[in-house]
Design a protein around this nucleic acid. Sequence first.
DNA 1: AACTGCATCAACCGCTCCGAA
DNA 2: TTTCGGAGCGGTTGATGCAGT
Length: 326
Amino acid sequence: MGRSPCCDENGLKKGPWTQDEDDTLIDHIQKHGHGSWRALPKQAGLNRCGKSCRLRWTNYLRPDIKRGNFTEEEEETIINLHSLLGNKRSSIASNLPRRTDNEIKNYWNTHLRKKLLQMGIDPVTHRPRTDHLNVLAALPQLIAAANFNSLLNLNQNVQLDATTLAKAQLLHNMIQVLSTNNNNNSSSWPLAMQTSDNLFGQSSYLENQNLFGQSQNLCHILENSHGEDFIVKNQTNDHPLDSFSSPVQMNAQDDYNSLPLLVPASPGESKQSQMMIKNKSIVHEHQHNQDTSNPSSSNSTQDHHQPWCDTIDDEASDSYWKDIIE
DNA sequence: AACTGCATCAACCGCTCCGAA
DNA sequence: TTTCGGAGCGGTTGATGCAGT
């Protein structure tokens, strides 16, 4: 278009706003509304460009803005919406009442992005990072997939297409290879894998991803039942799969391929749980009181389906599978 | 106390979108 | 259909404060 920026005009002030300027802007908008932002500075007697006034008002001075720390619920909402919408911060903000897109943008860049990286999650794709360290960091998913494969053998009523079965078989084979290579030597695992928060965060984060799970066909969810058993459930109705004559239960400590427990991704709660890897075993010590302080956390567990399920079933994830295979 | 590095966030920049003429 | 201006959006910058040495 070639239109010059509105702030190029000479003599207009830039930089931090003074209290007087704030008062002038608030007073003017309360009396007259903002109308045309370009015309506003002249009308209000401000030596600013209209754009600067608009940003100051929408990001800071608006009376309905909520300031201060983000709650855990808001964090989860931002992450989940970001996985759906990408960097559409304004769309995300519209789902977070009284928060501005600028605030969300800053919070994402300074907190959430780092948080995801520490969890081994790519903040852009919301997938486990596929560099050489984080392929192994995705092991909980692979391990879970191996479980999935064995589950298939347990129940004849589950019908799956050939592609899904092939993916499950591939994961199963990978688990065997990885298990052999690691050969009971936990010290050879990457540091990230030995960090409880990493494993914990990733599994629970991916679980949260499933709030908006794309799959409507493969309907499994593994639920933590009293911290020790897993029950296969139907993701679409949140009840145990009707096709199962009885819920399939597995004890986490019986099988080194068992899934890590599903727990919320909040940092505070992560400290209440400890996950350790010992000689190919994933042992999760779970404090039974962890959810009593946060009712929503248990709900979130029930409402989502499994990351491995998502990974296996996601028809759009072919490039991700290629990454794994390569 | 002085310095340095890092984290945070308000504000700016440049681009795109959209509606009016 | 094209042009133009207003508004909004995402990315980036820079001032500030804090923690560590």
